[in-house]
Amino acid sequence: MSAAFKTRLDARFASLRTEGRAGLITFTTAGDPDAATSQAIMAGLPAAGADVIEIGIPFSDPMADGPAIQLASQRALKAGASLKKTLAMVRDFRRADDTTPVVLMGYYNPIYSYGVDRFLVDAKAAGVDGLIVVDLPPEEEGELCLPALKAGINFIYLSAPTSTDARLPAICRNASGFLYYVSITGITGTRSAEAGSVEAAVTRIRRHTDLPIAVGFGIKTAEQAAAIARVADAAVVGSALVETVRANLDGAGSAKPGCAEAVLNVVRELASGVRAARRKGAA
């Protein structure tokens, strides 16, 4: 089923299809390492080659994340980040960019605490296109997925190597925007999947949905991103970017000059890898 509305995500994936290439989805955590640097990174992402921007909502207990993104969350919270400020960051970004899709990714509690209805109104107004909420499987779709669809925001489901063919219809039932294939059984930023196993999984998922399929977890280099771009509709990179943030902090944990630029340089490399990869089957 496709959603009854169109978002920037639909438009972006349509234009990628026309270009005959896969997209690059970048993940950085809102407010990491501080509000200004994080905003500067976000503002520079489209020009650096990010096709879709994922922004992490900082959370105290990121159960599905590895050390790199855990630390990014901690840095952001220490610097005063919150869900409210995350929305403000998107609003600010939208003043200069009304086409790059923005997806918020995080855990349910900050959203639940904010209030689902109020959150959806504010997220829509800020220019958020989609949501990825790690701890809301299809079994809990009444919490946020269905209300989000009513509010005109895509709810992006995760599918994992453990998601059997019997489960995929439930995952795809209310999925919209794109489907996010978690390529390993594990947490973010740890192991990397073989391109061959990813291709098999993408083929399997395709039988259940027409949505674009993005692949993430464990993609760190331009080569890995290119390998994924040959078999999927988008590659998601996160831990490698927040690691770059960490590598550009001074002893006190503050951003060194050039921190944002260093992250954007990594994005440029990844984007060149993704763009050079000719899609399998594409002319």
């Binding site: 159960m63 599905a64 790690v134 809301l136 499987p137 995760l158 453990t162 998601s163």
Partner: peptide, 8 residues
């Protein structure tokens, strides 16, 4: 309220 990987 768990990640998809754990749901099965």
């Amino acid at each position: 309220f768990v990640a998809e990987t754990l749901m099965p």
